[in-house]
Write a protein that binds this DNA or RNA. Sequence first.
DNA 1: GTATTACTTTTGGTTTACCAAACGGATGTA
DNA 2: TACATCCGTTTGGTAAACCAAAAGTAATAC
Lengths: 237, 237
Amino acid sequence: MAKTIKSKKAQNSEKPTDQVISKVKELINSGVLKPGDRLPAERKMALDFGFGRTQVREALHKLEFYGIIKTLPQSGSVINGLDINTLDGLISDVLNIQPYDFLSLVETRVLLEVKAIQLCAERRTKEDIITLEKAHKNYVRYFDTPNRISHDFAFHRAIAEVSHNPVFKAMLMIVIPDIMAIYQKDRICAPDRAILIEHERMLEYIISGNAELAGAMMAQHLQGVLEFAKSRLEVKA
Amino acid sequence: MAKTIKSKKAQNSEKPTDQVISKVKELINSGVLKPGDRLPAERKMALDFGFGRTQVREALHKLEFYGIIKTLPQSGSVINGLDINTLDGLISDVLNIQPYDFLSLVETRVLLEVKAIQLCAERRTKEDIITLEKAHKNYVRYFDTPNRISHDFAFHRAIAEVSHNPVFKAMLMIVIPDIMAIYQKDRICAPDRAILIEHERMLEYIISGNAELAGAMMAQHLQGVLEFAKSRLEVKA
DNA sequence: GTATTACTTTTGGTTTACCAAACGGATGTA
DNA sequence: TACATCCGTTTGGTAAACCAAAAGTAATAC
């Protein structure tokens, strides 16, 4: 199946951007370019590859985003360290990015958020606690309004912030919205008062600095979503 | 400190792209735009905001990348579901993305990879095992060459693949190269034969399906990097 | 009155031309 | 000979014009 999709893509609609990236990949694999090298000017690549400069620029943006190259104004783009094989693998990954399935997203969320709340409990400052309490208060206040979900999200976002790990936060910000979009669409989740208590507990454990209990509570809190994701998978299969 | 950096950024070099995103954010906050709405045409925004269409397009690319909008060819860009508050938070996050510190990267890597190898042990197929064995063999073969690091990376990459969780894989692909770049630069890591054995063990546990031991071994394997990250932090402070 | 069709407008995608900063070599001077 | 300076070239960044697909609209045939 995946094969079908892939070949179809290759035939019909492989985006120009990705085609350009493939060309760069070839350059690297053929040995013309090595890690650390400056790659050709945008204009030259556009000409050589047979694409417009816009497409080349977009490709470079993408490669820079994934940390494969670094573009310096008025000076060119350089291929980041490492070695040829690694580079080749990384670029392949960029080209083969697949849409994320729901279960994978939820798995990742649980993992990140349980750890995040543990770090929270260990690292929270006085200001952090105030932030969290405010977020929780808002959640309580708007619990019986349509804005509940919004403040639910805000609370979890605050935890990500207080974990003091920007990588966690960035990744959760990618994962959570996707989850909520699906979750909200497929299942009108009734306002369950148990969730209120769980939030309450999590907050307490963070304040008291009990990382283990905080993590356990978060795991329990997210159990429902995880179950839902698994059941959804079975339905589909 | 953070304040200093921020104000400095605002003065000097807030990229046009981010300025455009700020404008969009204002539109949402002021209630002109709601989730689900189509936002104005690129040309109109360019005119209204006082930027070129190029900048507007880049901003839209960025917002689409982070899942905040969805752009349909010849039809406009629509704001993804959720609600105003959530949306505002998300956009703020996009605007405030900070460079990742080394410890945060390593923390994330350990978390993801320990879980990834556990999933590996649970989900590996026969083909997966062959893939992993091949990767390990290569690592052994090239252990005493400069290509060692390359095949080390390839082995870990294979584990991410076999976890059958594309989100893990994608995130590890972001995190690991950054780590390796720093690690390699700051510390010429001598080829330690202990690592060979650790890889060997991990492979065994995956094959035998022992998720717990596999995870523990991975944790031990990455302990060194984690220690290094923490010590580096102390040196800096 | 309704459905269909042809056309005009609007949309995002692409190409082109232009700009200012950075680099590099040639040249002149100490 | 060493160094500084100037100027032309190359670079990525930006703006503007052009293209084709989609959507909305009005006119027409039934």
